[in-house]
Design a protein around this nucleic acid. Structure first.
Lengths: 351, 351
DNA sequence: CTTATCTATGAAATCGATTCCATGGAATCG
DNA sequence: CGATTCCATGGAATCGATTTCATAGATAAG
């Protein structure tokens, strides 16, 4: 492999490995003479330090791990990109892992990364700590190991770690007020999986906003998806067949929204006319859709930056206050007047 | 941190560290008695081996690195997901890095990963080796270091490494034949950046197919983008203002296609009527678009699997033949009859 | 019953860096 | 000028595992 070790460099430079090490790691206790010769030798030999040996001794790695829930969800890839760029600016390499919405894969990544050592971790956590203790056991162990860690986007109720999350309450209020002003009274909600705190937060905020606006509140208006395409498609069918005949729907993330829209398009329905749609997350497919979909979105660049800042603070042993970012509601033509008749009886072209 | 070392486990189990190590790494030269006691002690103490120490000695890490060009491009996140799942199935952890279409970030990741040791690397390489030697110098050094490596999706002409790539020639032939059958004669091409081999391959295949079909061939029909949203938007304007008044356009990747479509939509143009569009990559936004966009797509699950298989073979010192996957053309309503009059004169609503 | 073979084990070397400690020589001080 | 501090340096210990090597004890072979 890379046969060049620091001994080779030291030999070539005519100094001891200790001195070579000092020069290469910027220790000031080195003479200019030694410095130039070691540097020349290192360059000459293409010396690349063995990070394992280095951090085995020094316990520093200049790298962090980032665990996201789903690489293929643009929400998370945007977040990942932001985290990576800001970490890079702080001199930290980012190792990305994909939990794939599974606690097993989350645990595997955590264990690997913990045993390979990183200086800190930014985690979008999964799991239902309350009901299913061992779903988050590994995570708790990692936290207990003392490695600097922050949660981003999602949290776990019973694991206390600095966090950067989004608050959708206000934006949902706006969205629902907007729907109400268009005459909608029965609004459905296609939500996310219980293991994601964001799903719970959005669901509760939805209920609160519905109640505050005096609109119809019923468990039948809530569909439990899993934040992925297929469950959005299911939700779309559920919506069409809903006995309460809702005239609008709010969807808790983009992949589900896309799944739903693809079903509705197939059935020839007209969004904004037959019924109204608001989705979380602002992604190309929703903006390019005809009509464009009203969204509740997050500034992921900001979220990524805040997460990195929080982690850097934790790494410096500073105390970090939780960060709550506000979501933004953007009205678009996917919200239109509530149809006179139910979309479910004759208003619907072919269902 | 994780204060529990193998010595603690050995002590607790009443054996030497050597025996503990043998038990924990599955060495058969261990007595059942020792085995049970060490295993119990390890479980008891929540022992997590220090991967750095382990692989410092053993030079095995059970992990690979995956370098992609752009996390936010769904094409690559799909590929990443496939690679990750198949690597996982083979017992390998994947560390993902994002080159962000920049050779600098590519080099940083390569250096970090090389110095932290991984057992192999799957790389979507960037850079123009022919013209700009040092753009790929680091990559060459990594290859020379002897670490098992395969290229996926893209290649570099002068670095010989097993590869898994896609061939678009046939699919482009089909696409262009389809366009021709609809009466299109002047077809434009919005291509990718020179540093990506896929951009070159698609461009050449386009030229070949155009020539084979006896259609208009002219440098003015080619726009050089960079595989990203903004350059697609530029390309869209370039297309509308093109003096040769092309009636159809093929776009070399999805982010550019989305950028272009958003411009055209803003101007109120009707795809499939005013002019026809074919895009590479099959992503939600293109399928949900109205009308759906005809695409030339790749089986990324297959590509990811092939890449992992190739890497595993290289790691076992087997020789690996290059893999070429065929792209698939899927006609959709974004391809329609060529307009009688130029879209560029009066056919165009408001430009 | 003796010798040869095998098995499980521990002590010690090893991987490649960093860091503690001791030291010789230069610089500073009284 | 002698005593003291400072500086750069090399030798050796260290990080936490794996692996080599030697050995005691058990087993098989003659």
């Amino acid at each position: 492999m890379n046969a060049v070790t620091i001994k080779d460099v030291a030999l070539a430079a005519g100094v001891s490995p200790a001195t070579a090490s000092r020069v290469l790691s910027g220790n000031p206790a080195t003479s200019p003479a030694a410095r130039t010769r070691v540097e020349a030798a290192a360059r000459e030999l293409h010396f690349l330090p063995n990070a394992q040996a280095r951090s085995l001794r020094s316990t520093k790695t200049d790298s962090i791990a980032l665990l996201i829930s789903d690489v293929r969800n643009p929400y998370f890839s945007d977040l990942a990109h932001a985290v990576e760029q800001h970490a890079r600016a702080a001199g930290l390499m980012t190792f990305m892992g994909n939990a794939n919405e599974s606690t097993e894969q989350q645990d595997e990544f955590l264990a690997t990364v913990l045993s390979r050592r990183v200086d800190g971790m930014i985690v979008v956590p999964q799991g239902l700590s309350e009901q299913d203790g061992n779903a988050t056991e590994m995570l708790r162990r990692v936290v207990d190991s003392g490695i600097p860690m922050v949660f981003v986007d999602r949290t776990l109720a019973d694991i206390q770690v600095p966090r950067v999350i989004a608050r959708s309450r206000e934006a949902l209020e706006e969205a629902i007020a907007e729907l109400k002003s268009h005459g909608h009274e029965r609004i459905a909600f296609i939500g996310g999986p219980k293991h994601a705190s964001t799903a719970m937060e959005r669901h509760q905020a939805f209920d609160a906003a519905i109640a505050a606006n005096g609109l119809v509140t019923a468990p039948e208006l809530h569909f439990a998806g899993d934040f992925r395409f297929a469950s959005g498609a299911q939700g779309a069918r559920w919506f069409l067949e809903n006995p309460l005949a809702p005239t609008a729907v709010i969807i808790a993330d983009a992949p589900m929204a896309i799944g739903a829209l693809s079903v509705w398009r197939e059935r020839g329905l007209n969004i904004g006319t037959d019924f109204s749609v608001v989705s979380f997350d602002e992604v190309d497919a929703l903006l390019l859709h005809n009509p464009p979909i009203a969204t509740i979105s997050h500034d992921l660049e900001l979220m990524g930056r805040a997460a990195v800042q929080a982690l850097l603070a934790v790494m410096k042993n500073e105390s970090v206050a939780p960060v709550e970012l506000l979501s933004t509601f953007t009205p678009r033509p996917s919200v239109g007047p509530a149809p006179d008749k139910d979309v479910h009886s004759e208003g619907m072209p072919r269902a």
